[in-house]
């Protein structure tokens, strides 16, 4: 179909216009239009409209159920001096430490699994199970594992003579504990993508490198890692966006935001304000700021990636 259209593609302008008038052209455009209509309408209703609404709400004192009163920039001013806002923002970024850790671990795992050892399929499945499990169920399970007294984690630590802390109640350990869980949960997904990337590197590259006398570190550094770059880029972007929106784990494992607000993330705080304390306007203002932060970070990433991009010649 496509080729026929292309074949008939006219060269000069007059003919082109005539082609636009052809019934086939019209028909195809009509169909195309109808095809893209549902997602466009969906986007307008479920994304653009709520987003615009939130922007508007962020300038009001809306409590979520009543009337909106315009308050100008007050919400944003309040935010500047709101310690909980800054603390939750800090907590959110702190927990992103899990992203590089997860990527490195999954890359190592993927490299190991790509060597065609026995049991590859088995381990691939094992590592992938947390990915398909319900996050809520996993969070509850880990909550038990982290239990200071009966928890699995501390029991294992006790075997080697370490007295583990009460992970989720301790201001210093609660964030690392949640990070560890998130890494564990996300490992399988990143690993699978890396595995696909590693396996699709043409063997000829390695053969050529070997002929030139490259050692395995050089092969890794100059072939495998660069060839996996698009996957790394994709994972970094999606993980940062996902990490900024961390909520479920925190809400289940530390329902009050942790002692001294030590595990509250920005989305948890936004939710708290919006749905517990009748401050939808303020919550909207915080989500606008969060949105802007995510946008800037992602834009930087894209910029960085484009600068160091290269094409296979």
């Amino acid at each position: 179909m496509e080729s026929t259209v292309k074949d008939k593609a006219p060269v000069d302008g007059r003919k082109k216009r005539r082609a636009h008038d052809s019934s086939l052209y019209k028909n195809e455009h009509r169909v195309a239009f109808l095809m893209i209509l549902p997602p466009v309408i969906g986007f307008l209703i479920f994304t653009l409209f709520p987003a615009a609404y939130a922007v508007f709400a962020s300038f009001t004192d809306w409590n979520g159920i009543g009337q909106m009163n315009w308050v100008g920039l007050r919400n944003f001013q309040v935010m500047l001096t709101d310690n909980y806002f800054w603390k939750s923002l800090w907590n959110t970024f702190f927990m992103m430490i899990g992203i590089p850790i997860g990527l490195i671990l999954s890359f190592i795992l993927a490299s190991a699994l790509s060597r065609g050892l026995k049991g590859t399929t088995f381990f691939r499945t094992i590592y992938y199970i947390p990915v398909i499990s319900s996050l809520a169920a996993i969070a509850i399970m880990w909550q038990w594992a982290y239990n200071g007294d009966y928890g699995l984690v501390n029991q294992v630590l006790a075997l080697v003579g370490i007295k583990g802390p009460n992970w989720l109640q301790n201001v210093h350990t609660v964030k690392p504990a949640i990070v560890a869980m998130s890494v564990w949960k996300g490992l399988g997904y990143s690993m699978l993508l890396y595995l696909a990337a590693i396996q699709s590197v043409p063997q000829t590259f390695y053969e050529a490198a070997e002929l030139d006398g490259a050692n395995s570190w050089q092969k890794f550094k100059n072939i495998t890692w660069p060839m996996c770059k698009p996957v790394t880029f994709f994972l970094v972007i999606t993980n940062i966006i996902g990490g900024s929106q961390l909520f479920t784990e925190v809400n289940i494992m530390t329902p009050t935001g942790g002692s001294e607000f030590s595990s509250a993330t920005i989305v948890w705080y936004i939710w708290q304000k919006a749905f517990k304390n009748f401050q939808m306007g303020y919550a909207s203002a915080m989500s606008i700021i969060l949105g802007i932060i995510i946008f800037i970070v992602t834009a930087l990433q894209f910029y960085q990636n484009r600068r160091s991009d290269y094409k296979l010649g």
Binding site: N147, G148, D149, Y150, K163, P165, N166, L168, Q169, N170
Partner: peptide, 11 residues
């Protein structure tokens, strides 16, 4: 707290 948290005392 080292030995227990609220969930534990319930147990």
């Amino acid at each position: 707290v080292k030995e227990s948290q609220s969930l534990d005392t319930y147990q």
